[in-house]
């Protein structure tokens, strides 16, 4: 399988007044590979570097060292983002637009012809169950509806790679289930999904492979079953072990 997403010795440093060195290392030589057609879970505690990795992949942050590529193209080139869809954790879209206008705007960015864009917008709004609200402005939407609009805009260009940042964060169990179903469906269509999450159970269920990152360093990578067998514990215990969690003694 071809490699869709690749990072090599990826390093990101920030200036920091809190540290004596004046530099905070957010990512320290991260090597990552995501292959076509797989669902890849990117796991780690808060502050581990998951979001920083995504920022680099999406071009929001320039790496200090190393490189990152999407479809073999350096992430700093806009063309690298032509075939990806991105769903941020906190979904904020232009509140003065309707869902339909938003999707049409993004379709235009991708250069999708009008007729094709109309067809996709109809299909996506049906998929995320927002047909009834397509002409309402987004400022009237609930959080769940905004999340679903986010998913729709991430799929508007029929992407080969989906980057999802905590896709089930803040959703109720029904919402989480729907997101899982959509991810499964995308996988069955041959798309690649790269997502970050705190929900280990979810990762265990739907991911083909996972990577666990802590303090900017990759701690483990591979199939869930292989990791569990190798370390002889479940994913949660493995996670806690790799991030260096020491259970408190109960007196």
């Amino acid at each position: 399988m071809s490699v869709i997403l690749k990072t090599e010795r990826l390093r990101v440093e920030y200036a920091s007044r809190e540290l004596r060195s004046g530099i905070k290392v957010a990512l320290n030589g991260l090597d990552l590979e995501v292959r076509a057609g797989e669902v890849f879970g990117f796991l780690g505690p808060n502050g581990a570097g998951k979001t920083t990795t995504m920022n680099v992949l999406l071009g929001f942050v320039n790496p200090t060292g190393g490189e990152a590529r999407l479809f073999g193209v350096d992430v700093r080139e806009p063309i690298a983002r032509q075939r990806i869809g991105y769903l941020p954790e906190l979904t904020y879209y232009y509140k003065f637009l309707t869902a339909e206008e938003l999707l049409r705007f993004y379709a235009r960015i991708f250069g999708i012809p009008r007729g094709e864009a109309d067809r996709r917008i109809d299909a996506l709004l049906k998929l995320v169950e927002l047909e009834h609200a397509r002409t309402r402005s987004i400022k009237t939407y609930s959080k769940g509806m905004q999340q679903r609009v986010g998913l729709a805009q991430a799929l508007i260009n029929n992407p080969a790679l989906l980057i999802l940042d905590e896709p089930t964060s803040g959703l109720d169990p029904l919402g989480r289930m729907k997101v899982r179903e959509i991810i499964q469906r995308l996988k069955s269509e041959g798309k690649t999904v790269f997502f970050s999450s705190h929900e280990l159970g979810e990762a265990e269920t739907i991911c083909d492979r996972v990577a666990i990152i802590c303090r900017g360093e990759l701690k483990a990578e591979g199939k869930v079953s292989d990791l569990v067998t190798q370390h002889q514990c479940d994913l949660e215990k493995l996670f806690l072990k790799l991030i260096g969690y020491q259970p408190q003694e109960v007196i």
């Binding site: 999406l58 879209y93 260009n157 980057i163």
Partner: peptide
């Protein structure tokens, strides 16, 4: 501030 720049620049927009 509204974070609308992120979904936009995540598209092929320089």
């Amino acid at each position: 501030e509204n974070r609308t720049i992120f979904p936009l620049l995540a598209k092929p927009v320089t």
